[in-house]
Design a protein around this nucleic acid. Structure first.
Lengths: 185, 185
DNA sequence: CGTAATGTTGATGTGTGTCAACTTTGGTGG
DNA sequence: CCACCAAAGTTGACACACATCAACATTACG
C-alpha cells in the first residue's frame, strides 16, 4: 500500500492504464475527464479528499485523472480491501456516493439554462472541494468548468462576470470566491 | 428472496421508499427518473435484464423506477448477498457497470447538437434493451426520450422524422425500428 | 521583462426551445 | 365491433439564449 504525491497539473493516471490498486485521494483535488477523437474534453467528475478515483480492479481505466492542486493519493490493493471485515461494505458505500454524484451531474446537464447549470456546478464543487460555508476555492480554468457544464468558456466567463456585478459572487482571492445565499449549498 | 411481476407503467419503487432489499431486474425494461419541484422530469437511467435498480441498503431511494414493459424483479436481501462468497465482488461489478452507464449519459448530454445526443441515446438504448443487431424496440414516449436526452419532445420528433426520411432509421413495427449503419452500436 | 496561457468582452448567427394547431394512436365502454 | 375520448405524436412559425468568431486584457511563469 503505497502513497504518492502529485503536483498541480500532474496526470495521476491516463485512459488505457491498467486498473489494479484502487487510488484513494487523501488530500487535494482531482478532475476526471475523457478525451474525444476530435479533441473535445468532457469532465466526468470532481474528487475531493476521501474519494476513490476509480474502481477498476481488472480492466483498464477509460478516463484521465489530473491533480488540480498538490494532492496525496494512496493506492489500495483491491484484494486487501475486499478481504477486510467491512471492506466490501465500505467500497459499496464509496461507489454509491460516486453514483449519486454522477446523477447530480446528469441532472445539472439536463437543466437548459447556463445560469441553472452553473449554480448546480457551484454547489457540486462546494460539496467536493468544500471549504468553510459560503467560501469556495475553484482551482479550475474556465475551459474546465465549461467542459464540466457543457457550456463554452465564454458563457462561463460572462455568467460569472454578471454574478460578480450583481454581488451574487465576490472574488476574495486569486481563485477564491465568497458565495452569497443564492449559490450556497 | 421474493420475485414480483410488474405491468407496463407500474411503479416499482418511488423516491422516499426505504432501500432494503436490492431489486434485480430479471426480464423486461425499466426507467429510473427523478421529479423536480416544477414538474420537470429527468430520466437517470435505463435498466435491462440483469441490472440492479438501486443499491441503497440503508438509506431511502431518491428516484423513481417504472416498468416500461411487463417486467420481473427479484429482491435480494443485502446481507445475504454480502455474506455470499463472491457476492461483494459481484455487486461491485454491477455498480461499476452502472457508473460507466451514468458516465456515458454524462458524455451524451455534453454533446451540444440534437443529432449527436440522439444517436448516443440510440446506442445506449440498444445496449440496455438490446434486440438483435440493428433492430431496436423503443418502449419510450417522445417525452421520456426528451427527458433522457435533455431535449424537447418536438426536437426528438423532428430528428427521428428526418432520420426516417433519410432512411437512417425505418419503422418496422409499432415502436420497433431498424437501424442503418450510422446508428448501429 | 517578455511571452504564452488564460480570461474578458463585443458582434453576429443559428439550433433548438416555445407556442400553437392539427393528426394519429390506443384504450374504454356502449 | 365500433365510437369516442384522452394521450401521444407531428408539423409549422417564430424568438431567443448560447455558440461562434474575433479583438483585446490580464495573469502566470521562465
Amino acid at each position: 500500500m503505497s502513497s504518492k504525491h502529485f503536483n498541480s497539473k500532474d496526470t495521476i493516471f491516463a485512459a488505457g492504464d491498467a486498473g489494479g490498486a484502487l487510488p484513494k485521494l487523501i488530500s487535494g483535488a482531482v478532475i476526471l475527464y475523457t478525451l474525444f477523437d476530435d479533441g473535445r474534453r468532457q469532465v466526468l467528475d470532481l474528487a475531493g479528499p476521501g474519494d476513490f478515483l476509480h474502481f477498476d480492479v481488472e480492466d483498464q481505466v477509460d478516463y484521465y485523472a489530473e491533480a488540480l492542486v498538490p494532492s496525496e493519493v494512496l493506492f489500495f490493493p483491491a484484494t486487501e480491501l475486499l478481504a477486510a471485515p467491512d471492506g466490501a461494505a465500505f467500497l459499496l458505500e464509496q461507489m454509491r456516493d460516486r453514483l449519486a454524484m454522477e446523477r447530480r451531474h446528469v441532472t445539472m446537464l439536463s437543466h437548459k439554462g447556463a445560469e441553472e447549470r452553473l449554480s448546480d456546478f457551484i454547489r457540486m464543487a462546494s460539496d467536493c472541494l468544500g471549504q468553510e460555508e459560503g467560501q469556495l476555492e475553484l482551482p479550475l480554468t474556465r475551459q474546465q468548468i465549461a467542459d464540466f457544464t457543457g457550456l463554452t468558456l465564454e458563457t462561463v466567463s460572462r455568467t460569472f462576470a454578471r454574478w460578480e456585478r450583481e454581488n451574487i459572487m465576490t472574488k476574495v482571492g486569486r481563485r477564491t470566491y465568497h458565495l452569497h445565499e443564492r449559490l450556497a449549498a
